[in-house]
Structures are given as C-alpha cells and as structure tokens.
Design a protein around this nucleic acid. Structure first.
Length: 498
DNA sequence: GTAGCCTTGAGC
DNA sequence: GCTCAAGGCTAC
C-alpha cells in the first residue's frame, strides 16, 4: 500500500495538488487556454527565427559505445553510462542530445515525437522562404521546415505504425501480460506485477475450491431487476454489515456443461467489444501502476494504525483516478458530476480494488510493498465484524470474478455510475450510463457463459455489488472518526474529511 | 502541440 | 540480460 515516498513520481506530484477538478481536467487532456507556455508564446511570433539555411548537415555526430563497452555494470552505473551515451550523440534535426535511432535517423526524443505526430499529416507550408534553421531553440518555430529536415536526414514515415499495426502491437502486449502469469503459477513478484499489470490470478485449485452456491434458488429474479438492485438502494441493507457476506464461494459451471452450440451465446457488437476491451485494459493497467519509486521500499507495516491504514489507500485512489481518466463515458460527463461520482464511489472502489489484489490461497493483499496479511485490518479497525465482512467480501467476489479484468472493470464502472449519489447534477445522464453498462455486463456474461449461465453470474455479481455498497457505508462511518490532520491531502479531499 | 519519461517487444 | 526503437502518457 502507498506511502508518502510514492509521491516522488511526476504523476504523484500532479495528484498532490488535491485539486480534483484540475486532476480530472488534466486526465482528459483538456488544456485551458491560459496555460500557454513561454515557448508557445514565442512560437506565435517570428522573433528568434534565423535566416533561411538550405544546407542541412545530415550527418549526426555519433559516438555509440558497443554493448561490450557497457560491460556488466549495475543498474545505476548503467544509467550513468547511458546518460553519457546520450551526451555523446546529437540529434540530426535540431542538434539536441540524442539517445539513438528514431525512424531511421539519430534524433532526440523531441524530434522523434514531433516526427511521429507530423510525418503522416498533409504537408504544411513554411511561412517564410523555407529552409528555416532548426536548432534546439528554434525547432518549435517552423513545423514545415522541421519536418522537411526530418525527411532530409533520412527519417522514414513508413516506420510509423499504422492503426492496424498499433492494434496488433497492443494485442501482443495484452497477450504477453496474460501469458506471463498463468493461474498455475505462484503469485507474481511485485516487479512482475508492476511491469505486467497482472494481479493475483488464483490457482486452478482455488478456482475449483467451490462450495455449493447458497443462492441458486434465489437466482430467478428478472435480470434487469437484479441488475438495478446492484446499484440502487437495497431495502434492509442500508445500515449494518452485509447480510450475505459469509465468505460464500461461487460455483462456476463445469466447462463441459457450457453449450457448444454458438446459438446459445450472444454475439457482441463491434462497439461492445471495443468498449469492453478499453475498460478491461484500463483496469488492468491501473491496478498495477504504482507510484512508489523507492528502489528499497520499506516492508509493509503488519500492525498499522487506522490513520496509516487510511493513508495506505492513497495509491489505490490514484489508481482509480487514472482509471476514470481512461473511461470515455466518464470523461464526457460534466466536470462537477465527475467529481461527485468519484467521491461517492471512492470507498467502494478502494474496497473493490482490495478484493482484486486479494490472494485467496494466502489471505493477503498484494500491494506495492509486497504481500500484506488481511489481519493488518483487524488491529487498525478494532472492529472484528467489519474485518470479517471485508475479508469475506474479498473471498466471495474473487471466487466469482477470478482474474477476469473485464468483469472487474464493469464492477468498477457500475460502482462509479450511480445516479442516486450525493450532489449529482445530471442524474438522467448517470442513469443512462448505468443502464448502458448494466446491459453491457449482461451481454458480456451471455457471450462468455451462454444464456444458460449468464443469469447466475448476473445475480451473483448483483449480490456482490450490493454487499460492496453496504461495506462501503460501514467503512465510511469508521473513517469519519479519524484525526484529519494526519490524513493525506488527496484522501481528505476524496473522502470528504476536510 | 511539445517534450521528456516510461513501458514494451524484438533482436542479438 | 542487454540495447534499440517503437508507442503511450502526461506536465507544460
């Protein structure tokens, strides 16, 4: 779980401002007009432009150490050597320091990114006579001459991946992530976890570790009604701990009982596939993104205080903010409602994510500092019932969702889009979004588990989302008792503890 | 839109 | 296990 050292990262620093509106705006890549930089201001005038120079020096200054020059240095030594390598190469476009070849020519990062953005665009005209001098200082002034120089030193636009190639590349990444951590392996190391984005997929033994579902007889309510109950008030469950949380394990249908006839499965539309792929990737990427840059992180505290426990959710809250930044429907909402939705669902989201990183076999949470036994909750909460409810919730929902990130993402989104939440201005929009994702969940389950079993999954997930809501309310009452002066600023904001 | 850092797959 | 060279992400 996160600590203050985690804030050393660039992203962490950006979140420390605790201005949620600004964070969300930044996520949507919306740049306010008043944020013009000095450089961009310069770029709008001709000041600083040098006289045209039509003779480009297309021979970069290169001095590239061979791999053997680098030797078997440790990582810090390697970093220093790489830094020296960088110093010794010069961008063929602007003369800035270069690290290596980009699109067939030695360039700096800046010209690499510039070429990637502009090489495939229809050509722009130089506002002067062409052949503007391009150096570190002037490279922003004339895109036309800069791109011309890129081509002149041999940069190749056909090395930029097209949409099809990018999609294939992304699919390879996803495939590798899933291959790196199979269910029959032990829990991944933290390094693996951080690099691959995968989290604690349970072993086959655990997947088989099922007891008869208590609710099979209850799974007869209409899907829509059940689904709505997942996110709407459930009478009798508003206060107290979840009634259905007894560590119940979901019984998955045996593979041989799944119909072989494709007619029993829903065919998802292309739009549905895209949305599911997007949110699944967003969840998978953010669940394993840690801000902790400390190469020697302290081991997790096995007996944290309540304040420490709450502060340890800082990292998870940042993951949540990154996730919503990747959800198109969330970004389309008005900013006020984005903030309200985030605040209304933050406790449920933290709990949901704790369940995602819960390892059934070991009864631990996997976080940036390593494995944290669930017993750490016990001391901090001083509330055995709440502790038991939390762990049972983790066990139950994990037994249903296992390592299916599409389902984790859908559960996360349904917790997020709640039209009944506090301070929502446009409840109809949220209700429509909720409908959209309820239907998407239903369709997804029908496509994966056939019409035959989809309803069982739907009802089980509805139960879990209801429990999540109740558990979140119970936790909320607990955290209102903490001393706000000891809580991280971001958490004060999102948990409304100010 | 720019620039810099980061992550990743491929190739050696 | 390393380097290289792609794209992604995000502060500015």
């Amino acid at each position: 779980m996160g600590d203050k050292s985690a804030e050393a990262s660039e992203e962490g620093a950006s979140l420390d401002g605790v201005d949620l509106a600004r964070v969300l705006t930044s996520m949507a890549s919306i740049k306010p007009l008043f944020e013009q930089t000095d450089d961009s201001a310069l770029s709008s005038s001709s000041a600083g432009l040098s006289p045209p120079d039509h003779t480009y020096n297309t021979t970069p200054i290169i001095s590239v150490p061979s791999p053997s020059d680098l030797g078997q240095a440790d990582s810090s030594e390697l970093s220093r050597k790489r830094a020296r390598m960088k110093d010794e190469k010069t961008c063929g476009v602007c003369g800035d320091k270069a690290l290596g070849y980009n699109f067939n020519a030695i360039t700096c990062e800046s010209c690499k990114a510039f070429f990637r953005r502009n090489a495939l665009k229809t050509k722009t005209e130089c506002l002067f006579q062409g052949g503007c001098e391009i150096d570190v200082r002037t490279r922003r002034f004339c895109p036309a001459c800069r791109i011309h120089k890129c081509f002149a030193i041999g940069m190749k636009a056909d090395m930029i991946l097209d949409d099809k190639e990018k999609k294939a590349r992304m699919e390879r990444v996803i495939e590798n992530r899933s291959r790196k951590y199979r269910p029959d392996e032990m829990s991944p190391t933290l390094t693996q976890l951080a690099s691959m984005g995968g989290i604690c997929e349970p072993s086959p033994q655990v997947a088989e570790q099922v007891v008869p579902a208590e609710t099979s007889s209850q799974m007869s309510s209409p899907i829509a009604q059940a689904a709505m109950a997942a996110v709407v008030e459930i009478p009798g469950r508003r206060f107290g701990l979840p009634q259905t949380l007894h560590g119940r394990m979901f019984k998955h249908p045996p593979r041989e009982l799944l119909p072989s006839d494709p007619q029993f499965y829903r065919r998802l539309t292309e739009d549905e596939k895209w949305i599911l792929n997007d949110i699944s990737t967003a969840f998978q990427v953010t669940i394993a993104t840690f801000n902790n840059n400390d190469p020697n992180p302290k081991p997790p505290n096995p007996n944290p205080s309540l304040n420490e426990l709450i502060n340890s959710t800082d990292e998870t809250v940042r993951q949540l903010i990154r996730f919503v930044g990747k959800v198109g429907d969330f970004q389309q909402m008005r900013k006020d409602d984005q903030i309200s939705c985030l605040k209304n669902s933050v406790m449920q989201s933290v709990l949901l994510r704790s369940a995602c990183v819960y390892i059934l076999e070991k009864d631990v949470f996997l976080c940036s500092k390593g494995e944290v036994p669930t017993s750490c909750l016990q001391g901090a909460l001083e509330n055995p019932s709440l502790y038991a409810a939390h762990v049972n919730f983790c066990r139950s929902i994990k037994s249903i969702i296992l390592n299916n990130y599409t389902l984790w993402a859908l559960a996360q989104i349904l917790a997020l889009f709640n039209p009944c939440g506090n301070a929502i201005l446009d409840r109809e929009v949220l209700s429509s979004l909720q409908d959209k994702y309820i239907i998407l969940l239903k369709h997804y389950l029908e496509s994966e588990f056939a019409f035959t079993f989809a309803q069982d999954y739907m009802v089980a997930l509805q139960d879990m989302l209801g429990d999540l809501k109740t558990l979140g309310e119970a936790y909320t009452t607990v955290i209102y008792n903490v001393n706000p002066t000891e809580i991280e600023p971001l958490l004060l904001e999102v948990f409304n503890l100010k």
